[in-house]
Computed example of a mutant assay.
Amino acid sequence: MDNPTLWLIVAGGLVIAELMTGTFYLLMLSLGAAAAALTAYAGGTLTWQIVTAAFVGGAAVVVWHLKKPISNDALDSNVHLDIGETVTVDAWDAQGHTQVKYRGAQWAAVCTPNAALEPGLHRISEMQGNRLVLEKI
């Protein structure tokens, strides 16, 4: 079996592994293997094939990693389904803390920074561990 075929088998194996794991990093490495196959078709030596696979695959992984948006899971309603729900605050203490009943349990809660501590209806805007961050509605 010749080198281009081997590189294409490696690329296919990486694509299959990527489909099983759900990450795009293995897909980027498969691009490097495909580039190495093209280098082999062009008559490049095994050293150049490996260098091409490493460079293209590694560069694709770095570019993919840098392009991923940085997310704050504490503010993401797709991670915390409680974000956006409403609770009723009876009273705040002097430090800006309160206890609210939510989903049948007592939760510790704080108010968003620089907001007035008023009782009434509040929306959950963030989760900080097991503490709710509330904003006045």
Rank of each mutant, 00 (worst) to 15 (best):
L6E: 09
L6C: 02
W7T: 05
L8D: 00
L8H: 11
L8C: 11
I9S: 07
I9F: 08
I9R: 06
V10C: 11
V10M: 05
A11Q: 02
A11D: 00
A11E: 02
G12L: 07
G12P: 01
G13K: 03
G13H: 03
G13M: 01
L14D: 00
L14A: 02
V15A: 12
V15K: 01
A17E: 05
E18T: 05
E18V: 06
L19S: 11
L19C: 11
L19I: 04
M20F: 13
G22K: 15
G22C: 07
G22Q: 12
G22Y: 11
T23C: 04
T23D: 12
F24Y: 13
F24W: 13
Y25Q: 07
L27Q: 03
L27N: 00
L27H: 01
M28Y: 07
S30I: 03
S30C: 04
L31T: 14
G32W: 09
A33L: 08
A34K: 10
A34R: 11
A34N: 07
A35E: 00
A36R: 01
A37I: 05
L38W: 04
T39N: 00
T39L: 01
A40E: 02
A40P: 01
Y41M: 15
A42L: 15
A42M: 14
A42F: 06
A42E: 07
G43S: 10
G43E: 11
G43T: 09
G44A: 15
G44Q: 13
G44V: 11
T45Y: 05
L46Q: 04
L46G: 01
T47N: 13
T47V: 14
T47F: 13
T47A: 15
T47Y: 09
T47I: 14
W48M: 01
W48G: 02
W48D: 01
Q49T: 01
Q49R: 05
I50W: 04
I50L: 09
I50T: 11
V51P: 04
V51G: 01
T52C: 00
T52F: 03
A53C: 14
A53K: 05
A53Y: 07
A53P: 08
F55K: 04
F55T: 15
F55N: 03
F55P: 02
V56H: 12
G57K: 15
G57S: 12
G58W: 00
G58N: 10
G58H: 03
G58M: 07
A59N: 06
A60V: 03
A60F: 06
V61T: 13
V61D: 05
V61Y: 02
V62L: 14
V62G: 05
V62K: 10
V63C: 08
V63Q: 10
V63M: 14
W64C: 09
H65Y: 12
H65V: 06
L66W: 10
K67L: 13
K67D: 05
K67T: 13
K68D: 00
P69T: 09
P69L: 03
I70N: 09
I70E: 06
I70Y: 08
I70A: 11
I70Q: 10
I70W: 07
I70D: 04
S71R: 15
S71F: 00
N72Y: 04
N72P: 06
N72S: 10
D73Y: 08
A74S: 13
A74V: 05
A74E: 10
A74Q: 11
D76C: 09
D76Y: 02
D76T: 11
